[in-house]
Amino acid sequence: MTDPSDTADTTGSASQEPRPAWSRESLVLRLEKVETIEELSRDWAWGGATGEGVRVAIVDSGVDHTHPALEGCVDVDKGVVVELDDEGQAHVVTKEHDDSFGHGTACAGIIHSFAPAARITSVKVLGAALTSTSDIFVAGLRWAVEQGYDVINLSLGSRKRDWALAFHEVCDEAYFKGSFLVTAANNINRVTYPSLFASVTSVASHTGADPWRFHYNPDPPTEFLARGINVEVPWLDHGLLTTTGNSFAAPHISGLAALIRSKHRDLQPFQLKTVLWATANNVQEAQQRGGPVTNPEAAGRFTQSIKLTGALNLSPRSTMSLRSIQQQLAADADQPPSP
């Protein structure tokens, strides 16, 4: 926490102009107190939190705000649709809308199940009337960043390299403005934007069934694994569906991020990511065991280890695929739900 007597220019401006990096007198950046890694427990992170005061944007196919499972958590009047004008330019229009596919409602339901008091806003970029080109994705994402949402869930991506720079800029803007941007990773080893940027938190599925269980993945760009298999979610027509895909893993991390943010308002994205790392099941379990992430039997095959002495041990560099890591972590996974 910064000294309250020194508030000048520490938060950055809302200007669209690039901001310079500059050196400052270190004395004015003195911190009052910081938690040590050992203090970053799940109870510290989100114990007693409900998501109160946190705003979450879901950039997706819309959200059915009338779905009973959402319990009125959607700010209908704030919802927007990205539309193309006659000249093909993307515009963000504030208006009530539905969910074209059920995908956005599913993400909202997962986030709400973690952070019931968080307010959700739908940013519709997918749908029957939308061509959903990359400029629509970027426009929707940029709007959410400009509005300063605490957490932004983006369970979709673009493969177009021409848009990489645009995605990169808006994701960096999110990072510097303090919006925690969570994206779904690709299921196979293919480039998608913005899931491979360091300024976002990219999430894939693990094979466990506990919604509160999530893993740190030491082989980025996918940094966390969360539940994404056979997840019961709200869908169209006020119904429920069982779904599988990384799209549904990402909102698990978004929901946790909303909880953490409601309890620790000052956390910047990199700090929030660190809290997630410290509270990930495999990291917590490694700490308890004082050993590698996986069980000893698997250690020969799973050569990556994490030791919570403050250092990340990545020697030798694993050549295992994300899939292999998922399977290996799943071997440790099935424990009772543990909020």
């Binding site: 369970s155 299921n187 569906l241 779904t243």
Partner: peptide, 10 residues
């Protein structure tokens, strides 16, 4: 969306 998905009706 470019995202694969599996669905089963509930």
């Amino acid at each position: 969306s470019g995202q694969p998905v599996a669905l089963q009706p509930g």
